[in-house]
Design a protein around this nucleic acid. Sequence first.
DNA 1: GTCTATACCTTGATAGAC
DNA 2: GTCTATCAAGGTATAGAC
Lengths: 186, 186
Amino acid sequence: MVYTQKIRREILVECAYELVEREGVEALSMRRLAQIVDVRASSLYHHFPEKSALLSAVAEQGLFHLAAALERASTLVSSDPRRQIYAMGMTYREWGLQHSHLYRLLFAGTPPIEDASSASPSATVAPVLAATEVLVGASQATAAAQAIWAFVHGFVMLELTGHMQQCLPVEGFQLGLACFVQGLGR
Amino acid sequence: MVYTQKIRREILVECAYELVEREGVEALSMRRLAQIVDVRASSLYHHFPEKSALLSAVAEQGLFHLAAALERASTLVSSDPRRQIYAMGMTYREWGLQHSHLYRLLFAGTPPIEDASSASPSATVAPVLAATEVLVGASQATAAAQAIWAFVHGFVMLELTGHMQQCLPVEGFQLGLACFVQGLGR
DNA sequence: GTCTATACCTTGATAGAC
DNA sequence: GTCTATCAAGGTATAGAC
């Protein structure tokens, strides 16, 4: 056989990941990615049925990294759930701001596939759920985790979309986080 | 002159608004809109320099309606800032869920133009800011409003993107709102 | 099985005629 | 102001070379 394999799926995802992180989703076209790995655009369809599948793969990678960062932040501090929540919140925001293009992709548009296999959106919140369970008990743990996630996510999104130019956003972030940490502990 | 005026800017915005609300942003193409108002696509560019300008106009309309709903909710209840915040939070979420396509447009991508003229994102939070000012004082009012806005916005976004299938989201929403209303009152 | 060549269709946008 | 014509990108399907 003459046509040996020039590209592998993982390579494609990796290149797409870097491109999105650097220049944003709009910059990622099938032709552009193909050019980077030196093949024709149509060849990509032998590895991904459609563009959205590629984007999903990229998003999954991003979720994996984000979840890892949260895990790390949670285990670094003491086992006090309040400190853990605070640490995870700060880390979450940092990650989102530093990987702005990627973060937007993670939560823009794509309905979560909830694939049981690897990184899923709910896996991202798992460490938060663990902390809230200790703090407020199993019955309210999910609701508490949802609330905290919503706050942190919303804050990052508003910052990324430029809706928080006024004063220092950090203050509002820490204030909100404090409200949860205190308010949830009865 | 042969070609008389067939369309007005406001009509275009109105039609685009309805189309977005019904079928989402993806459904709005210049050709599609042109067809609706019975004109050629290129003619639209005499009313909007580019598509994004049209989308901005639509978003501005949406912000205006959302802000009006919040104002209404705030004045309907007593002058207790806690009740006002709670009422506005519930109303905000309702509006977002009911106008999902529109809501996504409001906060997706577009950097806010902060036009001093009419409806701007900060005008949306104005009634919230008024309530927090009474509750926590002027020095912390902005931070508190930011935090509340972030929570509500984040919650709606997570619901709209399908990241909250598990159990009843309402519980988490009310729990979070309660945290703020109580936590901010010292 | 993998990649190339090619073509189709939709879309945003522009130029110039009336 | 609106028209026609036209362009450049981009997603995608298909046929075929090796």
